[in-house]
Design a protein around this nucleic acid. Structure first.
Lengths: 244, 244
DNA sequence: CCAAAAGTGTTGGATTTACACCCATGC
DNA sequence: GCATGGGTGTAAATCCAACACTTTTGG
């Protein structure tokens, strides 16, 4: 009697009607969580609290349950660790090397998440073991998590140039300088201030507020909102596409 | 006793050392196979020979085995159906809606493949049930396969503009006109002949052969090769990037 | 009054687009 | 000799990159 046949006999809540002879595997989700704080792009990592590799730094992750889809799993994993919901997440890539997890054969689907660090209260449910790292100061990660991070950074770069996802990393109100610094950290290169502002303004999706942020300069810098409705209207009606 | 505990007891060849309480699922691969023939972009579909949805048109697919990774599965699935190996394939996206496959809970990872239809001998092992369709004449597909195709087309478009993957769809030797028609079908828009040729030539990755293709015009059109070595050398040494 | 960040336009170069005629050949 | 597709260059428009000075205000 093989595994699948046993499955069939013993698993009463989900009879294997059609694909009886096929192997089943564990499916995990690992989240690459980006944040922007102190003018730096950060990565949220945790100290692993299970074997194998107990105590090593790792992406946050968890296994998909039968009644979930992957997006749901990713949201749950993020919520369980940080207490945050309604966070921008995007599926990235599925990692399947046979020996990628020495604990047991497990396939992992990576997701990236963008968090506005400053303005989210971390209920910090499990945050004792979690820590934000500068991208270039992150510790060595377990398994293939570094590959996941590298791919996530590449994707973040591409996305940030072609979709207005950068705003997910900023507070509601932000200055031009903050926005520029954000893009500079994502793209890992200096940008010209005037060209940047001209480009952003030409996209015409920001609302300039009356209010100024005076915490960083004496003169004060105008605050802006991203006008999501206007952006979506432009996309729908004029085929507009955000290109930085 | 639950499923995982049973698994643990009964599955002797792979003891579940660490993640004992977690659900396992079927993992499938579905392949979106593009070909280019008669100056049209085509999609290879099969009539499904298993339940559920027996007899309906479907992407080719198969389940991952425990000793495989997903790339291997994709290659095997493609080989089993077409007899082809060494085909360009790329992982796309993982589909996980709980009820996506009415037969049984199954997660599916989509891959796209690019085949030079003209020059590959299809040993046609199972090709009685398979058929090339024009993209706009493809039949209704089972499950979420149409979503997979749509995403694959979008990805193919982006890739074709930023990587020299178009050549995977052409014979070794091709005319400028063929190359242009290929891009026109991928991008689904007409391109200007002179601008296209100027652009391609400026990339400087083609070898112009002495030989002409005289099958389509009296004058005959020069044949070209894609110079893969030169391309890779440029990428490595000059940070060159293929942008059409 | 001065230090520190905010704000603001122009120009030259590069890239992209639009566009039309002659060529070679087989029939 | 003519019909068919092959091959070729230029000019205008647009986009992109480089660049420096004035403003504001808290201390």
């Amino acid at each position: 009697m093989n595994q699948s046949e046993l499955d069939k006999i013993t698993n009463v809540d989900q009879p294997l009607t059609y694909y009886e002879k096929e192997d089943q595997v564990l499916l995990a989700v690992d989240c690459i969580i980006f944040g922007f704080d102190q003018n730096k792009l950060k990565l949220l990592l945790v100290k692993r609290n299970i074997e194998p590799e107990f105590g090593k730094w790792s992406l946050i992750g968890g296994f998909m349950k039968k009644n979930e889809n992957l997006d749901t799993t990713a949201a749950r994993v993020l919520y369980t660790l940080t207490g945050l919901s309604d966070i921008y997440m995007e599926q990235l890539y599925t990692y399947s090397k046979v020996d990628r997890d020495p604990g047991q054969r497990a396939i992992s689907v990576s997701y990236f998440a963008l968090i506005d660090v400053a303005n989210h209260q971390f209920d910090g449910i499990q945050l004792d073991s979690a820590k934000w790292f500068d991208l270039d100061e992150a510790p060595k990660l377990i398994f293939d998590h570094q590959d996941m991070v590298d791919k996530a950074i590449a994707r973040l770069r591409r996305r940030a140039l072609s979709k207005p996802i950068g705003f997910e990393l900023l507070p509601e109100k932000f200055t031009m300088r903050q926005l520029q610094t954000l893009y500079e950290s994502i793209l890992d290169k200096k940008l010209d201030k005037r060209n940047f502002i001209n480009k952003i303004n030409s996209l015409d999706v920001l609302i300039k507020l009356e209010e100024k942020d005076k915490t960083v300069s004496r003169k004060g810098a105008y605050l802006y909102n991203f006008d999501k409705d206007k952006y979506e209207k432009k996309v729908k009606e004029d085929g507009f596409s955000f290109k930085l």
